[in-house]
């Protein structure tokens, strides 16, 4: 079935990009009006609660400030990961089956709308939603961190001064506290969370092109998410675990698996950012490439499946 645009000189109006934006804007509005942003209240609670949680620690009192800041980052980024992945999978899994069930898909595809534009629009709508959600959560997290950093700074500096620390030691402590506050590495971690959610949304849209229900799409997408975390380890064990992994076929097979299923361990830079370590630009560049590659890969495979789908 050929659903690619014809090259004939029909009086077609609009363009691909315009149509994709219309569908994306609509998908975004649809999800917003489904009140998905209510979870922001839960996130705000988590961000505030993480200030007061005291977990057992083995470090000295001079590290307590950094511990509190790490705790805020850890809880906030954890909640961001949870919300963004759940949102990207569930929202995407909901959109296509709902359009088919309600027959709204018929009215859209009966217009001069190529199927690729429809899919890309839906995906972009979900990605937009995830982006806006993350930006809001990021703003909350940064706000909480800024506030807490200045409090920790004055508390800790006051404490070490009373213990008689020298200026150099105090400056070093200040630097440590700043490193654990809000910085560019933390924004890199948020970008990593966003890229991972975008990949998951694209994967969910691929699954929903051949799935028959929202439930199936959601379950398989989460399964693929977990496989993404273990596939690199599994490949390593297979390739280095014995003779089976030494052959060319095994290596090609392993390469194909990595081309189709993302290695989500690459996104562990988030942990480094929580620990206050700087995330190298090269690592971020690699993440961006991986995120864009898998998102586009899944989108084009979705198109391949969806182009021949009958309704």
């Amino acid at each position: 079935m050929n659903h690619t645009p014809s090259s004939s000189t029909a009086p077609a109006r609009g363009n691909h990009f315009g149509r994709i934006l219309v569908i994306a804007g609509h998908a975004f509005t649809q999800l917003v009006r489904m009140k998905v942003f209510y979870f922001m209240a839960v996130f705000a609670l988590i961000a505030i609660a993480s200030n007061f949680l005291s977990l057992p620690q083995h470090a000295g009192p001079e590290s307590m400030g950094a511990q509190v800041l790490n705790q805020i980052k850890s809880w906030s980024l954890g909640a961001m990961t949870l919300f963004s992945v759940v949102l990207s999978i569930v929202a995407t899994a909901l959109l296509l089956p709902k359009d088919i069930e309600d027959r709204t898909l018929y009215t859209i595809l009966a217009k001069p709308v190529p199927r690729f534009d429809y899919l890309a629009g839906k995906l972009l709508g979900v990605i937009l939603l995830v982006l806006v959600s993350l930006l809001m959560m990021d703003a909350l997290m940064v706000g909480a961190l800024q506030l807490r950093t200045s409090m920790v700074m004055s508390e800790q500096v006051g404490m070490v001064k009373s213990l008689g620390w020298g200026d150099d030691a105090i400056e070093s402590l200040k630097q440590e506290i700043r490193a654990n506050g809000s910085n560019w590495s933390l924004q890199g971690a948020v970008l990593a969370v966003f890229l991972r959610a975008a990949v998951m949304a694209a994967l969910a849209i691929l699954i929903s092109t051949f799935s028959t229900s929202t439930l199936f799409t959601t379950i398989v997408s989460f399964l693929m998410y977990f496989i993404g975390y273990f596939q690199a380890d599994a490949r390593d064990v297979y390739l280095h675990g014995g003779e089976a992994g030494q052959g060319a076929v095994a290596r090609i097979g392993s390469l194909l698996v990595s081309l189709v299923i993302p290695d989500f361990q690459l996104f562990n830079v988030i942990d480094a950012a929580i620990e206050g370590q700087a995330v190298p630009l090269v690592a971020m560049g690699k993440l961006c490439f991986v995120g864009i590659y898998y998102t586009l890969f899944y989108l084009f495979v979705s198109w391949f499946v969806f182009a021949d789908k009958e309704f």
Partner: peptide, 18 residues
């Protein structure tokens, strides 16, 4: 089967939900 054939068509499906 060509997308541009739909420039000239309007369609109302049975029992539509918008």
């Amino acid at each position: 089967m060509q997308v541009d054939s739909r420039n000239d068509v309007g369609f109302l499906p049975e029992n539509p939900y918008f």
